[in-house]
Measured scan of single mutants.
Amino acid sequence: KKVIATKVLGTVKWFNVRNGYGFINRNDTKEDVFVHQTAIKKNNPRKYLRSVGDGETVEFDVVEGEKGAEAANVTGPGGVPVQGSKYAADR
């Protein structure tokens, strides 16, 4: 997939743990970017499923997906693991 931007910061608008996807609002352009659970590179080690939490600040790359921009290599700011959704089960 073609990389559009790297190391972008954004805020998770919403993320559905059961369906495994959601949207991140970019801090720079204010665009909403699709995020799939497979794009989460550093999950919270205490969580079973990969997820990001609503309102969480994340860092990610933006790539060209089939339906427009989507997030890739999602981590917390500075490459730390994401916090994850409060609806995702703990280990």
Rank of each mutant, 00 (worst) to 15 (best):
F15Q: 01
R18N: 13
E56Q: 06
G68E: 03
G55H: 10
I4F: 14
Y21K: 02
V17M: 10
A72H: 15
A39G: 11
N27V: 08
K41I: 15
V58Y: 01
V8K: 06
I4K: 08
P45E: 11
L49S: 05
N27W: 11
R18G: 07
R18Y: 07
D54K: 15
G78M: 14
E59Y: 05
G65I: 04
Q37F: 12
V35R: 00
L9P: 09
Y21I: 04
G65Y: 06
E31T: 13
T6S: 13
F23S: 02
F15G: 01
K7G: 11
K86A: 12
T75H: 06
D61H: 04
G84V: 05
R91M: 15
F15R: 00
N27E: 14
G68L: 06
R91E: 09
K13V: 07
V52D: 02
G65C: 13
V58I: 09
P77A: 10
V82T: 09
N16M: 02
V80M: 10
R91Q: 14
K2R: 07
I40D: 00
Y48C: 13
T11H: 12
S85V: 07
G55I: 03
V62F: 02
W14F: 11
K47P: 05
V33Q: 01
G76W: 06
E64P: 07
K86D: 12
K13D: 05
G76I: 07
R50H: 08
Q37C: 07
Y87T: 08
L9M: 11
G20C: 07
V58H: 00
Y87M: 08
V33H: 01
Y87W: 10
G22K: 01
N16S: 08
S85E: 05
K42D: 05
T57C: 12
K30D: 13
N43S: 11
H36C: 04
A72W: 13
G84D: 05
R18T: 11
K2G: 05
V82E: 04
V62T: 03
A69T: 13
G68I: 03
L49V: 11
G84C: 05
G78S: 13
P81I: 07
D32Y: 03
E70A: 12
E66N: 13
N16H: 13
G10V: 00
A89F: 15
F23M: 03
G10K: 01
G79Q: 08
N19V: 14
R26F: 02
V80F: 13
